[in-house]
């Protein structure tokens, strides 16, 4: 069966519809059936509708995503309270250890993203992975910096990613590989992302899952929760009325 490939991190400004159109058309040509664009927390439904329409033209499903950059755990909790029911994917950019720990244990968070170029602030260690594994939070790896960097910086990045991926595998934390780019020229096919993931020892079925089933599972799970009929996991309203 053919896998549905997804790119959960296309860093394009949703207000720039022309650019969104170009990026989504390229994503569709490259073989992505589902893409996520980060929207500002104050979600404008008109903009989402416009972008969704653009995506439908290319046969690609658009998913709304919000990138939270909280400074404190209180900021994170209030952000999640306000935004969880409005976005299909919630990503937390972990810039401090407290935030990273809180995000890893909160079931409302979908993906954890760490600053790729600031190696001192990559807090994905065994403790973080243990918390993430018990709350279905995934680790997101953006490939953009891997393409942009050269020399020692890329060596350091690969070494960090290798260690984090090994930790994630040990604790069965799902890994999501995304492009994380705004430039069309840096977008790559799913098979190419899989090949690049082999550079940090994520290979074979795990790498394929990271660009297909893992991101798609997150999106479908959240779409189910955002559905009007959702009551609790496994329970949903099928029909309302006197004849039920």
């Amino acid at each position: 069966m053919k896998r549905t490939c997804a790119d959960l991190h296309l860093c394009v400004d949703p207000n720039d519809v022309e650019r969104v159109s170009r990026v989504v058309s390229k994503a569709s040509r490259l073989g992505y059936a589902l893409v996520a664009v980060p929207f500002p927390p104050r979600l404008d439904e008109a903009v989402v509708g416009k972008v969704r329409k653009e995506c439908e033209e290319f046969g690609t499903e658009l998913v709304s995503r919000v990138d939270l950059r909280p400074r404190t755990t209180e900021d994170l909790l209030s952000g999640l309270r306000r935004l969880r029911r409005r976005f299909e994917v919630v990503a937390v950019m972990c810039e401090s250890k407290h935030v990273a720990r809180q995000a890893a244990k909160d079931r409302r968070v979908d993906v954890l993203n760490f600053p790729l170029l600031d190696f001192r602030r990559r807090f994905f260690d065994a403790a973080e992975a243990e918390l993430a594994s018990s709350s279905l939070v995934s680790l997101e790896v953006d490939m953009g910096p891997l393409l942009r960097l050269e020399g020692v910086a890329r060596v350091k990045l690969l070494s960090n990613l290798r260690r984090e991926v090994a930790t994630a595998k040990d604790f069965r934390v799902p890994i999501v590989v995304s492009s994380g780019v705004a430039d069309e020229m840096l977008m790559r096919k799913p098979a190419e992302l899989v090949a690049l993931a082999s550079l940090f020892d994520l290979s074979g079925v795990s790498a394929l899952d990271a660009v297909s089933s893992n991101p798609v599972t997150i999106v479908r799970r959240n779409q189910g929760k955002l559905d009007h009929g959702f009551v609790a996991p496994g329970i949903r309203v099928i029909r309302r009325g006197r004849d039920c």
């Binding site: 490259l30 393409l147 430039d183 020229m185 840096l186 977008m187 096919k189 098979a191 190419e192 690049l196």
Partner: peptide, 15 residues
């Protein structure tokens, strides 16, 4: 997949 430029011009190669 890691090729991003030829000289100073941006470039991408897809299989």
């Amino acid at each position: 997949a890691s090729i991003t430029k030829l000289g100073s011009r941006p470039m991408a190669v897809h299989v």
